[in-house]
Design a protein around this nucleic acid. Structure first.
Lengths: 218, 218
DNA sequence: AGAGAAATGTACTGACTGGAACATTTGAAC
DNA sequence: GTTCAAATGTTCCAGTCAGTACATTTCTCT
């Protein structure tokens, strides 16, 4: 004799379940932060149950860490799309800068995850080996451009690729991360399509002007 | 006949109590975010009790909003210290840039509050009239410098003070806000005293190069 | 086909936490 | 010195939420 309660049958699909959870988790964590996110909310947005979150990810922090890694992974994939061929150094650099700017704009969830990580002093990121390994390529690309630019005599000596990356990231990141407060205070003229074109160009100009040899300035 | 329980006597001091709460609240909110902060923790760090928090600030959001305003207030006070006299435009601008960079570094709690506000899409900041009124002076200062620079023929035409402020803020802000993730990934060479000097100078160079008339470049 | 492991469903709990109820004391004005 | 409002202390609660216990089903291997 069986129980009275109707039991549902289901089809097992571990990978899809994991992926489903991760996708929802990323969007929830990005939207609400670590302590602002509710596991129950994530669960309700998935096709599965809270039970499975704990089954696959252990606890909230485990899930968060995996979501963070997923965010980095997704963004790095997009970056691989950038191919500089053998453009002249100045064009190549301009291309990198523009690309970074646009790429950040297109990935607000990634930006938000990084913001949240910074609030938490990057402790989960530091714990993730996965992420650490993923991030050197950006620097390599810049280093190559710098070297070529210097060999051809159009760039200044003593450029530091990391410092250059820092500056490019700063503006591209801030443009997304601080849009809410900035536009709340100064209006959103900089954030419509035309405004974004302008600030993007302004950044390209600034970076190029900075790396270019004074004598070689057009 | 009185009750058996010992009742403590105390001295009333509303202003000091409010101030005490606000100071602690700011530091807690800056450290842990809005949902990460516990009212009980704030209470335990004050000289008074949780009761008084609700008495003076209504609820958690009320306290948070006031703490946010306090953060802005404190930082704006510091900014007023900057006096440009009548330096030549290029020097004045360089001074503003350097100052902003240093000032942000010296006020990490403010930065963190702004980060947190951005996570929340600036909804509390937008609701605060106080803050909105406080923020125009920075732009005015830049606008004046730009005008003088253009009159003297050393700056390009078509400069937008807001866009300029945006760029200066971006780098100065990012330098503090994203230090944890950046140094976790790329090392902290940029964040010791010498590294900070370098990136600061790099930013000054970039901004000056950008606003300077091509012909007028030394 | 059956046995054991992997995957999933359902219901529950213990701790935490924002906030409120109730009681008392201080201070100022008359 | 009485009165009344403002300020403070003490205690508790009702909802929330991360995490768990227990039961069941599906899958895989032989």
């Amino acid at each position: 004799m069986t129980t009275d309660t109707e039991r549902r049958s289901w089809r097992q699909n571990p990978d899809a379940v994991k992926q489903d959870i991760l996708t929802v988790a990323l969007s929830e964590f990005a939207a609400n932060g670590l302590s602002g996110t509710r596991i129950d909310t994530i669960a309700s947005r998935t096709r599965t149950s809270k039970r499975m979150i704990y089954y696959y990810f252990g606890d909230k922090l485990g899930l968060y860490t995996r979501a963070l890694e997923a965010a980095y992974h997704k963004v790095r994939e997009g970056e691989a799309a950038l191919n500089l061929g053998h453009l002249p150094p100045k064009e190549a650099l301009a291309r990198v800068v523009s690309f970074t700017f646009d790429h950040h704009r297109k990935n607000p969830d990634f930006i938000r995850m990084v913001m949240i990580e910074n609030i938490h002093n990057a402790e989960h990121l530091a714990a993730s080996q996965v992420i650490h390994d993923m991030n050197v390529t950006a620097i390599d690309k810049l280093a190559q451009i710098c070297r070529r630019g210097q060999e051809e005599g159009v760039f200044r000596e003593g450029l530091d690729p990391v410092a250059l990356h820092w500056q490019i990231s700063a503006v591209s990141f801030f443009n997304v991360s601080n849009r809410p407060t900035f536009s709340a205070i100064f209006g959103d003229a900089l954030f419509d399509e035309e405004g974004q074109q302008r600030v993007r160009q302004q950044m390209v100009d600034a970076i190029l002007a900075m790396v270019t040899r004074p004598e070689a300035a057009r």
